[in-house]
Design a binder for these strands. Structure first.
Length: 804
RNA sequence: GCCCGGGUGGCGAAAUCGGUAGACGCAUGGGACUUAAAAUCCCUUGGGGGCAACCCCGUGCGGGUUCGAAUCCCGCCCCGGGUACCA
């Protein structure tokens, strides 16, 4: 195409043709390498990361587009501020999502995934993201998962990975183990089936060892500048509680250790409750109670963990016949067992304080047990001997100290967080690189033998055996022990998808290296990630695991930072016409349709305009015409500016509007209030039109400020304005604070707190001068009437309030 | 239940170190241009009252603090998300 015909196609002064403009600039970017920073020499590197998508068969949905666009806008803004921005993209393509979908449509994921990825790639390119495609990755690529397996081995060697038989959450439909995080209200997060309890040998990572550090760093703004909502969600998930372990001596001579967060209420502990599985139950049970206890334990054992956790809350339980001494009161209190006490939390035994714990109270009422209040309405301890009168929090400290002196207890800190179970008895994931040998046990596959390739299995359907389908592939299953060479068996579990995504950001800058997971020099230059934007649905899973893995690598001396994401912001959710999008409602926004109708730029601009980025917004079809009309106005402005070659005196009001706009837009970009930044740009355009101003300097800066939102459009305008380099090589405009205020300002005049009048005064008029004008003001005098002025409040530059 | 968000015109939303509520956009209604329509441009648009200058009311509800509250405090209601016998 000749230059002339391109010009013709992208639009003339008469009209703007998004399709042609967008095709032209995407081709130009690819030719020029516009989006490819020099990873080895960039002087002001800025790693702009967005959460990589799972490549579903449906393609990118509008929520993805919203998230990616918002992140891309931020990256482009940083680029205009002079950074070399690295904005990679990839695909989180392993996992149950993909596998289940493949099963459903009767295809193999190895065929399905590349197809989906191709579609995603097309969509991502179409929307105009500033992606550096040289560094695309997929977690299913052996060149990637080789290093995921390597990562497992590093944890294994460092003693951070271990195997244990554990009661795990088992989804009978997906036929796999689920992490605690994947169980929502007792149901599988994916298929909604109630989860059962099973005991299997599982691989775990010792994330609990890092709980204190994971928590502490959240409060360190030098390491982490995160959305409050996300940080809070992590704090809650970590679930730190301060309490005490206290020993109660039973009449049998057994010592029952309980965990409580409320040692201050110990004088109100009138009975004890043990989990039915508690190892001391047998010993504590008297012969008369034996039959009843055994029956109860059998009933509980027959139920799965889930129905026990989420089932009816009616309290059940049985008296053991035994008693233990409350170390504070000296009283012998009865010992019960009940299923509301869980073996996996605390010590599996509690001191029950019915007066100050709802569950204990319910239990006490049901079984007629004693209730002794030990805290009064003012929150002070009562009937607690020497501690009576103390506020509860002071009492807690004092009682812990006293228990420690008695040797009856110790203050302890506990976390709700569990170790991370990474085993999955499924097919579509990286095989865990372990070989079992009769002689040597679990032996790591030597690193030079990685990757352990996932074999091509025609039948990858999981079964009920509790063993991965990989076990059915005999050729693969038997492998020589790396130590003795005798026949061993491979680990057949694959690792959790969350392990794939726990380190992908480390891989991006180093994708071309096949001999190392991440290059030291590249990593030093580009990490930690400068800005990470993603959904809050990953606030506790992905983000916590990624932090943990980073800490482990830091402690192994492999990276020199221990928090991977300097800045994290959670984006909001997009709804359609006020309702959540869903297929059944039929209100799903298909981005492709809008993009082909309106163009990527208009679509981007609308997404960023429809609500605050961090809160989301409501997508309405009628709304998109506004941003489009706005672009048409800018188009006219640019072409007119070129035609007139307008340079000259700028009238003061326009000058002020121009500088105010630069300030407001910059602040909006920094704080991700894109909707407000766009509104400010619209105001500027309206002002320029009202004033018939086509001033080149202003129009050029307008184009630069628009560029993050509408990159193709801005490039086209920039070229028409006579530039032969990318608009993204321009610099973000500066404003003059002295020019953001008008000569004359309007001051509101209130009488008794109600705005009654407005007066115009000079910008730098002092209080006396302002008041002189106010007192001369007719309307103000009318409202004061003859009343006495008691007080005058002057807020410089804003208002005067006359109190009568 | 608990923990996070949020509640402002017909609609999406601005304004939160307390200081002129409703910027910007959509949609209305009216007008211009046109044979007509589309597009475009101009004006109107929180509710009520008044010929008018203007006045009264108004940010989920009820109180409070203040010269002044969408914004702060107390007590509620509703919506969205997360989470739950975690002792």
């Amino acid at each position: 195409m000749s230059d002339e015909s391109v010009r013709e196609a992208t639009g003339t002064e008469a009209g703007y043709n998004p399709e042609a403009v967008e095709a032209k600039w995407q081709a130009r970017w690819a030719e020029r390498g516009t989006n490819q920073p020099d990873l080895d020499r960039a002087e002001r590197p800025f790693y702009n990361l967005m959460m990589f998508p799972y490549p579903s068969a449906e393609g990118l949905h509008v929520g993805n587009m919203f998230a990616f666009t918002g992140s891309d806008v931020f990256g482009r803004f940083q680029r205009l501020r002079g950074h070399s921005v690295f904005e990679p993209i990839g695909f989180d393509a392993f996992g149950i999502h993909s596998e289940n979908f493949a099963l459903k449509v009767g295809m193999h994921p190895a065929e399905l995934i590349p197809r989906n990825i191709a579609n995603f790639r097309r969509q991502l390119a179409r929307i105009g993201g500033m992606f550096d495609w040289r560094h695309e990755l997929s977690t299913t690529d052996p060149r990637y998962y080789k290093w995921t397996q390597w990562l497992f081995l590093q944890l294994f060697k460092a003693g951070k990975a271990y195997k244990k038989a554990a009661a795990v959450n088992w989804c009978p439909t997906c036929k796999t183990v689920l992490a605690n995080e994947q169980v929502i209200a007792g149901r599988c997060e994916r298929c909604g089936t109630p989860v059962e309890q099973r005991t299997l040998e599982q691989w775990f990572f010792r994330i609990t060892e890092y709980a204190e550090r994971l928590l502490a760093n959240l409060d360190n703004p030098a390491l982490m500048d995160w959305s409050d909502t996300t940080a809070t969600a992590q704090r809650n998930w970590l679930g730190r509680s301060e309490g005490a372990e206290i020993d109660f001596a039973a009449d049998t001579g057994d010592v029952i250790r309980v965990y409580t967060t409320r040692p201050d209420t110990i004088f109100g502990a009138t009975f004890m409750v043990l989990a039915p599985e508690h190892p001391l139950v047998d010993s504590l049970t008297t012969p008369e109670q034996r039959a009843e206890i055994d029956a109860y334990r059998a009933t509980v054992a027959a139920r799965d963990l889930v129905s026990r956790k989420v089932g009816e809350r009616d309290k059940t339980g049985v008296f053991t016949g035994g008693y233990a001494r409350n170390p504070a009161t000296g009283e012998m209190i009865p010992i019960w067992i009940a299923d509301y006490v869980l073996m996996e939390y605390g010590t599996g035994a509690i001191m029950a304080v019915p007066a100050h714990d709802e569950r204990d109270l319910e239990f006490a009422h049901k079984f007629g047990l004693k209730v002794v209040p030990v805290i009064d309405d003012e929150g002070r301890l009562i009937d607690s001997r020497p501690f009576s009168g103390l506020p509860a929090d002071e009492g807690k400290t004092a009682i812990i100290r006293w228990l420690e002196e008695q040797g009856a207890g110790t203050g302890v800190v506990r976390f709700r967080l569990h170790d991370w179970c990474i085993s999955r008895q499924r097919y579509w994931g990286p095989p865990i690189p372990i070989i079992y040998c009769e002689e040597h046990g679990a032996v790591p596959v030597p690193e030079d033998q990685l990757p352990v390739l996932l074999p091509a299995l025609d039948d990858f359907r999981p079964d009920d055996s509790g063993v991965s389908p990989l076990a059915r592939h005999e050729e693969w299953y038997y492998a020589p022990c790396p130590i003795c060479g005798r026949r061993g068996r491979r680990e057949t579990d694959v690792s959790d998808t969350f392990l794939d995504s726990a380190w992908y950001f480390l891989r991006y800058p180093s994708t071309e290296f096949d001999d190392r997971p991440f290059d030291a020099e590249r990593t030093r230059r580009w990490l930690p990630v400068a800005a990470y934007i993603g959904g809050n649905e990953h606030a506790v899973l992905h983000l916590l695991y990624a932090r943990f893995i980073t800490m482990v690598l830091h402690d192994l001396g492999m990276v020199d930072f221990d928090e991977p994401f300097r800045k994290f912001r959670a984006h909001g959710l997009i709804v359609k016409d006020g309702a959540k999008m869903s297929k059944s409602r039929g209100n799903v926004v298909v981005p492709d349709e809008y993009i082909s109708k309106w163009g990527a730029d208009t679509f981007r601009l609308y997404l960023m305009f429809l609500g605050p980025f961090q809160e989301g917004g409501d997508f309405r079809d009628e709304g998109i015409s506004g941003p489009r009309r706005f672009l048409e106005k800018v188009w006219t402005l640019v072409n007119e500016s070129v035609a007139q070659d307008a340079h000259g005196e700028i009238r003061r009001p326009v000058l002020v509007k121009w500088h105010q706009t630069k300030q407001r837009v910059t602040e909006g970009m920094e704080s991700l209030h894109y909707n407000v930044a766009i509104a400010a740009l619209m105001e500027l355009v309206n002002a320029l039109r009202d004033e018939n101003c086509y001033e080149r300097r202003i129009v050029e800066e307008l184009v630069i400020m628009l560029a993050p939102f509408v990159p193709h459009f801005a490039e086209e305008c920039w070229e028409r304005l006579g530039h032969d380099t990318s608009v993204f090589d321009a610099r973000w405009p500066e404003w003059d604070p002295g020019l953001t205020v008008t000569d004359q300002i309007e001051v509101a005049v209130q009488v008794g707190g109600k705005t009654r009048s407005r007066v115009r005064v000079d910008r730098d008029a002092d209080e006396a001068a302002v008041l002189a004008v106010v007192h001369a003001d007719e309307t103000t005098r009318r409202f004061i009437g003859g009343k006495d002025i008691r007080k005058v409040i002057y807020v410089p530059g804003r208002l005067v309030n006359i109190v009568v």
